[in-house]
Design a binder for these strands. Structure first.
Length: 692
DNA sequence: GGTGCTTGTCATCTG
DNA sequence: CGCAGATGACAAGCA
């Protein structure tokens, strides 16, 4: 049995924690006790271990072992029983952190992991961070360095810091083998160990292909996991989009693990190198959007910053897949903490019930990555819809004149309108802002202490305006479940990014518009201007409608109604939205109608030309026929007189054509008949014909 | 300023 | 009956 070393076991861990917290300037009013109370996110792997699955040799990664060291979670915290934080070494950490007066205390596992990652990465270099990140991504999202068996076992009561070696050393010796991703990430120095671990796993699952490539085995293992693990089978039962998010990213990370490590390190180097403006130093717009663009352009190098911070997803997954769910808070408690709204907004990749409670502001970094890791091509579009812009909101908060005290104040005062101060932050603490980042911030600055203010920011993002009366505008149901909030956030944030397009642009955009593909909105949004807004757009801006006009118009009926029902909108807003939709629909209908009318007119003109041509042809034919008829009449007349000129009666005198007519009988003989008889005979024949 | 065209909007009809 | 689309009529904007 091998145990993982606690991240704080590194002597520099706490120092780096302090550094990070200081440079971040954040105070996230963390209840570390709660954080420490959370059961380890390793139950997934514990389940695998207990099930004798392929991870039987995997290390359980837990940042919350009872002994203060990384250890087997099942030995650390019996399922369903929460450890006493004060009785555990973590309490010392908490006390030390508090004693240092650090304004930032990780509240959540994500925070802790983030801090830990930075600490490990700075202490160990890129590799340490890489290993931690890899382990985090692989073993349930908790970055960890693997200690050898000599490390203090859980529950032995040893001081983890005293017993710990550097995470790097531990990581160098034994990379967290909980998932192949870690080996892929650290393939440089641990090929043998990787193979060993993989071999063990394959033996455990009686896998036939032991000689295949590591990647092949990795993929095979990953494919076999859902079949052997009950928890993962739940993932398979999820909808496709959800299943993809829970399964695909592993391959993604495996493929891009190296880039992930670099990006992650770069991220935190930026953090470290710019203490005062650390968060601003992260060119969110560039990094984030760059990742988006990369993801859209290429599926191979798409994940930059996003992937680097994506490991938290496994933390999510591991926690979410925790069978006993002891770490979850009750929904009531969840709703009682407004700051969790951000979590809910950020947890779309999971089911509403799977949201990670307590994820605070710092959680947005990994969460961004969690959604971005899949954003390779098509998935990017969908994930953008649901998740990314939520994260933009959060990250933009960091880049937009981020005032840590203000933010902490936001978190402390859920009902205040302090979220609106984010507007003022545009010209307050922000040193320099690129246009792009500013656009992002304006469009998606949705981080506030409560959902209401969040919605206001989203409104701002949607309409690019301000909030003269924020409390009267859009209201979001933060009392509803997290899924609601997630979807809500997805909707209004997603709406942000086509909003200021000119009608033509909107039209052109909307033609390629897909409810599952909105990546264009990112770049469109960056070019956002208030110029040439239509009347409805201005109206929407005035009322802070959190949706784009184009979207309001083009949204399917069901989606439209669903959208209205899911948002707390004033009657005025609803009325305006319906008017916008009606006018937009009618505008399109009028355009279609006119086009159709023009088409009809053109068709009629064409028909008229064709008919005139046909008429002319017929007229000419008629003239020709009449001419032929006249010719034949003339010939017949000539022939008639020629015949009579040659006829002689019994006396040898010429026959008068005025008294006689030629009559052809049925047998072909020609008779000379007096006209009286001929006319009477014709009458009789006519009568017979009429009788017949 | 008048004119014709385009476009948006409203009212009404239609399926 | 409600709704979305179609369409006639009107007005505004523009060249």
């Amino acid at each position: 049995m091998k145990y993982l070393k606690p991240w704080w076991s590194d002597g520099g861990g706490l120092l780096h924690l302090t550094i990070l917290l200081s440079l971040a300037g954040l105070r996230l009013d963390v209840d570390l006790d709660l954080y420490l109370l959370l059961p380890p996110p390793t139950l997934l792997w514990d389940e695998l271990l207990l099930a004798g699955g392929p991870t039987s040799s995997a290390y359980a990664l837990s940042p919350f072992p009872a002994s203060g060291g990384w250890g087997r979670a099942d030995q650390l915290h019996p399922k369903g029983r929460e450890p006493d934080p004060e009785a555990e070494p973590e309490g010392r950490l908490l006390r030390e952190v508090r004693a240092l007066g650090v304004p930032f205390i990780p509240r959540t596992r994500v925070d802790a992991w983030l801090v830990h990652s930075v600490a490990a990465g700075e202490a160990d270099g890129a590799h340490g961070l890489l290993g931690a990140a890899a382990a985090a991504s692989s073993a349930g999202g908790v970055g960890a360095s693997v200690d050898d068996s000599s490390q203090a076992a859980p529950g032995d009561g040893g001081d983890p810091r005293a017993a710990a070696s550097s995470p790097l050393a531990a990581g160098e010796e034994e990379k967290a083998p909980a998932e192949p991703t870690a080996q892929v990430l650290d393939a440089g120095g641990h090929a043998n160990q990787e193979n060993e671990v993989l071999r063990e796993r394959h033996e455990a699952v009686d896998h036939s292909s032991q000689n295949v490539e590591n990647e092949q085995r990795v993929s095979a293992q990953e494919k076999s996991l859902p079949q052997k693990n009950e928890d993962e089978s739940k993932i398979a039962d999820k909808p496709d989009w959800e299943a993809e998010k829970t399964t695909e990213p592993r391959n993604e990370r495996s493929l891009n693990g190296t880039e992930t490590a670099f990006s992650l390190e770069d991220l935190f180097q930026m953090l470290s190198s710019q203490p005062e403006n650390s968060l601003e130093g992260i060119s969110l717009g560039n990094t984030f959007l760059g990742s988006i663009n990369d993801g859209m352009n290429s599926s191979t190098h798409n994940v930059n910053f996003s992937q680097a911070i994506s490991h938290d997803v496994n933390l999510h997954e591991a926690m979410l897949l925790c069978p006993d769910n002891t770490f979850r808070r009750e929904p009531v408690a969840r709703t009682s903490q407004p700051q969790e709204s951000f979590l809910q907004l950020n947890s779309h990749t999971t089911t509403p019930e799977q949201t990670l409670p307590g994820t605070n502001l710092t959680g947005f970094l990994p969460l961004v990555g969690s959604q971005m890791r899949n954003l390779t091509s098509q998935d990017l579009l969908h994930d953008l819809d649901i998740n990314i812009f939520d994260d933009i909101n959060l990250m933009s908060l960091a880049t937009e004149g981020f005032d840590p005290m203000e933010v902490s104040h936001l978190f402390e005062e859920p009902d205040s309108d302090s979220g609106l101060s984010l507007n003022s932050s545009h010209n307050s603490t922000s040193v320099t802002k690129s246009n792009s980042s500013r656009s992002v911030c304006e469009g998606a600055a949705g981080c506030s202490s409560d959902l209401e203010s969040l919605s206001h920011h989203d409104l701002e993002g949607a309409v690019g305006g301000y909030y003269p009366e924020p409390s009267k505008l859009c209201h979001m149901d933060h009392r509803s479940d997290s899924g609601f909030c997630g979807d809500l956030a997805f909707q209004h944030i997603y709406h942000n990014h086509t909003y200021h397009l000119q009608p033509s642009a909107l039209d052109s955009t909307s033609r390629s518009f897909s409810w599952h593909g909105k990546s264009q909105k990112v770049s469109k949004y960056l070019n956002d201007t208030d110029r040439n807004l239509s009347r409805d757009e201005r109206r929407a801006k005035a009322l802070h409608i959190p949706f784009s006009v184009d979207e309001i118009v083009r949204m399917p009926v069901d989606s439209f109604n669903n959208m209205l029902s899911r948002h707390y909108l004033t009657d005025l807003q609803v009325s305006l939205i319906r008017d916008i939709r009606r006018r937009g629909k009618n505008k399109v209908a009028a355009q279609n109608c006119r086009k159709r009318k023009l088409d009809i007119i053109l068709n009629l003109e064409d028909d008229l030309c064709n008919l005139q041509a046909k008429k002319e042809i017929l007229r000419r034919e008629r003239a020709q026929y009449n001419k032929a008829i006249n010719t034949m009449k003339q010939k017949l007349h000539d022939l008639y007189h020629d015949i009579f000129s040659r006829l002689r009666d019994d006396d040898g005198r010429p026959v008068n054509p005025n008294q006689y007519v030629l009559q052809c009988s049925q047998d072909g003989s020609v008779l000379i008949v007096p006209k009286e008889l001929a006319t009477s005979g014709h009458k009789k024949e006519n009568r017979k014909g009429k009788r017949k």
